[in-house]
Nucleic acid binder design. Structure first.
Lengths: 209, 209
DNA sequence: AAAAATTAATTAAACGTTTGTTTAATTTCA
DNA sequence: TGAAATTAAACAAACGTTTAATTAATTTTT
């Protein structure tokens, strides 16, 4: 059962780097150190392997925000802080998977897979939305555009992850700089988004200057 | 010379919808109504066709911000407003091309194409950066994180364009709603980003409530 | 202006590779 | 002994590309 995981993680790596279509089952087999036939033996087909990869990476997570949402002992802006850090942590930890998901979303092949991914990503949206709406209702937040605020939050992180090269160029870093494994960049992004959300959301916000 | 353009626009459409690898030259030929051999006759190869598509769509633009940047008669926040509207207009006008560019950026095939795209996208970044820095220096703006503010700006628009389905689900719209051709959504996004940037950037900002 | 010569555009067919998948035989392990 | 795992080989289909022949358009010559 070890070879199964080998195949899954190799497939994730290659699908993320080169895309689904540009990755051959022979590439995956070679990378995982197994015979080509083993992939169809275990997963049935290349497409089902893709589905298995997505399922493998998404099962068992996503319940992080559920309890946070209902916690009455912290303010809504503090919940937003937590969500920002959690999001950054997760997305930076697996940029390949992030690429894979968003590529499938932007493609018009495999519509059922697209729907499944939307469902997965939307779980987070629901939680954030509830927090924002609660904050607005209680008077802690301004009456902002909830949906587009979520878009800004996720979009900011997402865009930074799009391309290592673009990220390096934007931040004026050299070739040795790996954006996706850099702790300082994550902290910097966290700080930026927290500041941004405070200015954007809080009614009584005194900028530090 | 009319068939050349037919091929180019069909290729753009299909590359954008299905991705480069999943689009066959036969698909393109059929869509453009030409013989398969014409593609290699005109462009040399499938990969050179891709390069031609990118060149075709990017030549002759990109100088919009250059004059804006130096205009001394309007404030920096007004320049940001203009940039927001211009960006939204351009990206919503050609979501397929946007998909194509960002997919190439996230892939590790064709590195030279990746560098070319980074170069193209970076021209806008430079202009926005200059405006932000000028605003900070003059005291109109707070001392925000310039690079990440740009990321937020572009990322917000970009993320909304990722998937029609996700966009519809987020905004609770029905199947007939086409996010990319909806005027009200563009105005709503414009309003959101302008508000966001005012809260984020302006030193003396009085929220409307 | 008509005919001939030359270049460009267009086609159907075939090229060699690579693709995902399957088969049938063999090895491994309980 | 029997089921599961693993293998090398072969499968048809699809891929990007090329060829060689033909038609269309343009230029040159008469």
């Amino acid at each position: 059962m070890d070879k199964r995981k080998n195949i899954l993680s190799t497939a994730l790596q290659l699908f993320g780097q080169k895309g689904y279509e540009a990755t051959s089952v022979r590439d995956i087999a070679a990378g995982a150190g197994v015979n080509i036939a083993m992939i169809n033996y275990y997963f049935g087909s290349k497409e089902k392997l893709l589905e298995s990869v997505v399922e493998y990476k998404t099962s068992g997570i996503q319940l992080v925000f559920a309890e946070l949402e209902k916690n009455p002992s912290i303010t809504q802006i503090e919940k937003i802080d937590t969500i920002i850090d959690n999001y950054i942590q997760r997305m930076f930890a697996g940029p390949q998977f992030h690429h894979l998901l968003h590529r499938e979303l932007s493609l018009e092949n495999r519509p059922q897979m697209k729907d499944a991914i939307i469902e997965i990503l939307f779980r987070n949206v629901v939680s954030i939305k509830a927090i924002l709406e609660k904050g607005i209702e209680s008077g802690e937040f301004k009456a902002v555009d909830v949906e587009l605020t979520i878009t800004t939050l996720i979009g900011s992180i997402s865009y930074l992850l799009t391309s290592e090269g673009m990220c390096r160029k934007l931040l004026k870093k050299n070739k040795e700089f790996n954006p996706f494994q850099n702790k300082k960049l994550k902290e910097r992004l966290s700080e930026h988004l927290k500041q941004l959300m405070r200015s954007h959301l809080l009614i009584n916000h005194k900028p530090i200057k």
